[in-house]
């Protein structure tokens, strides 16, 4: 079983004050970490490998300027147990629509070949949720999004579970090869151990480029049909904290009533 994990390095925003620059956030001073949902995707891939054998390959696209942070993210994937990694970085990555990224990823995946491709269902920094499904469509393989469990079946199939509204669970069967995007609850990602970290920093990371993939600037231009116009901070909102007043039992009654009105609790 060969599994490709789509992993994205996203800016770490803990203790960081974001600034804007041009039509984007200023990324020059940012640290990168693995997109949270992709960490779950990696964990799922590693668990499948541990059960069924095979290979886990991490694929990441990103900004050339973020090379250091992205490399560090790949090392973290190695330290957790990934076997190989392919990194495609480009200086104009920040201007690309998902369609461009998906075409580049699918071109790499089609020459690699894989049984299952696993990604997060959303990335924390752009939150479009389109990347995974686009890659599947370009590769002409089936996909399922927002899965909460994955089971390997006999005869080249997998079963995945999807949680829908109101506690409804959908069970879907897909023929391999296929692509799935995972939700955060699907497993508990492991922590890397120190000796694996030490080994990971010595392991090679394959780098590829548009030239190597024979993708021209014209092609990119033609694929890039959705563009970010600008980003801005929302205008400050008045705080809408509500202070309840009264004796404790009165406050509790008011709170229960309010939560009921907002549909947050059911009786």
């Amino acid at each position: 079983m060969k599994i490709i994990v789509l992993a994205k390095a996203v800016p770490e925003v803990r203790n960081v004050r974001l600034a804007l620059k041009g039509g984007d956030i200023d990324r020059s001073d940012l640290n990168y970490i693995i997109n949270e949902q992709d960490d779950y995707a990696l964990e799922e891939a590693l668990r499948q490998k541990e059960k069924n054998g095979g290979e886990v390959v991490v694929l990441t696209l990103g900004e050339e300027a973020g090379r250091k942070g992205i490399t560090q993210m790949v090392r973290q994937c190695y330290a957790k147990g990934a076997d190989r990694a392919i990194m495609a970085l480009d200086a104009s990555y920040g201007d690309w629509d998902d369609a461009v990224k998906a075409r580049i990823a699918s071109s790499i995946i089609s020459s690699e070949g894989a049984d299952i491709i696993i990604g997060g269902s959303q990335s924390f920094d752009t939150a479009s949720s389109r990347f995974g499904p686009m890659v599947a469509e370009l590769l002409d393989i089936p996909h399922a999004t927002l899965i909460t469990a994955l089971r390997n079946e006999e005869g080249g199939r997998i079963t995945v579970y999807r949680d829908l509204e109101q506690g409804v669970q959908e069970i879907v069967e897909l023929a391999l090869p296929c692509l799935v995007t995972v939700q955060t609850g699907i497993n508990t990602p492991r922590y890397a151990s120190l000796n694996k970290i030490i080994a990971a920093t010595k392991k090679e990371i394959k780098s590829t480029s548009l030239t190597e993939l024979q993708i021209s600037a014209q092609q990119i231009e033609a694929w890039n049909r959705v563009r970010r116009v600008s980003v801005a901070f929302p205008t400050e909102k008045e705080s809408n904290t509500l202070f309840l007043q009264g004796k404790p039992e009165e406050e509790a009654a008011q709170l229960v009533k309010l939560l009921g009105e907002k549909g947050l609790i059911q009786r």
Binding site: T71, Q76, A79, A192, L194, I197, I198, T201
Partner: peptide, 11 residues
């Protein structure tokens, strides 16, 4: 810090 030290610290 070296790359491995940073990664260990973060982990």
């Amino acid at each position: 810090l070296s790359d491995e030290e940073q990664l260990f610290q973060k982990t």
